[in-house]
Computed example of a mutant assay.
Amino acid sequence: MKPVLIIIRGNQSSGKTTLAAKLQEQLGINKTLLIQPSADDDTKTMIKLAEYGQKRFEYVIIEGQLPKDIYSESIKNVIKMFGKQTLVYYLNLTLDQTIQLDQQRDDSYGRERLVEQFQPYDQIDELDINEKINRIIEDINKLPLF
């Protein structure tokens, strides 16, 4: 099977890191490269890590807020590298849902920061973490083998 690229985007405290870590466990730690770029990272680093992962792992997960104004071109380039073996997910929570999740964190971002950085989207994601993992695995199983 060709390597699979999984991109998980969303606002801070939307559950991206938790989903990516649990998905990595489910797929196999040794089979999966997890890339977590921050807005401060050089986007070229993300591309180089994805190239490395494509050669050495069955799955490459890129997880982060990944703002369009910074990452759009880089993400397009990485998607082009993996072609049809790409799955992209946006964890689309309302601001209230995001604040509720943030309050459960030990290292909370705080309401003010979340409100300031929140980027609204037009759908609400109501799946729990296990349903999200199951959906991603189902999507992986639908990909072409070669």
Score class of each variant (00 low, 15 high):
Ile79Phe: 01
Met1Gln: 13
Asp102His: 07
Leu49Ala: 04
Gln85His: 13
Lys44His: 14
Thr17Asn: 12
Asn141Trp: 12
Leu49Glu: 10
Val78Ala: 12
Leu33Ala: 05
Leu5Cys: 10
Phe57Gln: 15
Asn141Ala: 02
Val88Pro: 03
Tyr89Ile: 08
Ser38Leu: 10
Gln123Asp: 07
Asp69Gly: 06
Gly15Phe: 00
Asn130Pro: 01
Leu34Arg: 14
Leu33Gln: 08
Asp125Cys: 01
Ile35Asp: 03
Ile7Gly: 11
Met1Ile: 14
Glu51Tyr: 06
Gln104Cys: 08
Ile6Trp: 03
Leu19Gly: 06
Gln119Pro: 01
Asp139Ala: 13
Asp106Phe: 12
Glu131Ile: 00
Lys84Ala: 12
Lys142His: 15
Tyr121Asp: 01
Gln54Met: 13
Arg56Val: 06
Ser74Cys: 12
Ser38Pro: 04
Leu127Phe: 00
Leu27His: 04
Ser14Glu: 03
Thr98Asn: 00
Ser13Trp: 05
Met81Ser: 10
Asp106Pro: 08
Leu5Ile: 09
Asp139Thr: 04
Gln85Arg: 02
Ile8His: 02
Lys31Ser: 11
Ser74Thr: 10
Leu143Asn: 10
Gly15Gln: 04
Gly53Asp: 06
Glu63Ile: 09
Val60Asp: 06
Gln54Lys: 15
Ile47Gln: 03
Asp102Phe: 05
Ile140Asp: 06
Ser72Tyr: 13
Lys68Ile: 06
Gly83Phe: 12
Arg9Asn: 03
Tyr121Cys: 10
Asn130His: 13
Ser38Met: 03
Leu23Cys: 11
Lys132Cys: 06
Leu93Arg: 06
Leu145Phe: 11
Asn141Gln: 15
Ile129Thr: 14
Asn92Ser: 15
Arg113Asp: 11
Ile133Val: 15
Lys68Thr: 11
Asp40Trp: 08
Leu127Ala: 09
Ile140Ser: 10
Lys31Ile: 03
Gln119Ile: 14
Thr43Ile: 15
Thr86Val: 09
Lys76Asp: 15
Gln100Val: 04
Thr98Glu: 00
Leu114Tyr: 08
Glu138Phe: 11
Lys16Asp: 09
Asp42Asn: 14
Ala39Gly: 07
Ile6Tyr: 11
Ala39Lys: 07
Arg105Glu: 14
Ala50His: 02
Gly83Ile: 08
Ser38Val: 07
Ile137Ser: 07
Arg113Lys: 14
Gln104His: 08
Arg113Met: 09
Val78Ile: 15
Val88Ala: 07
Asn130Trp: 01
Lys44Cys: 11
Asp41Pro: 08
Gln123Ser: 12
Pro3Met: 03
Ile61Lys: 12
Leu66His: 01
Pro144His: 12
Leu127Trp: 00
Asp40Met: 03
Gly28Ile: 14
Asp96Glu: 15
Gln97Phe: 00
Gln65His: 10
Ile124Gly: 04
Phe57Trp: 03
Leu66Asp: 01
Leu33Asn: 08
Leu23Arg: 09
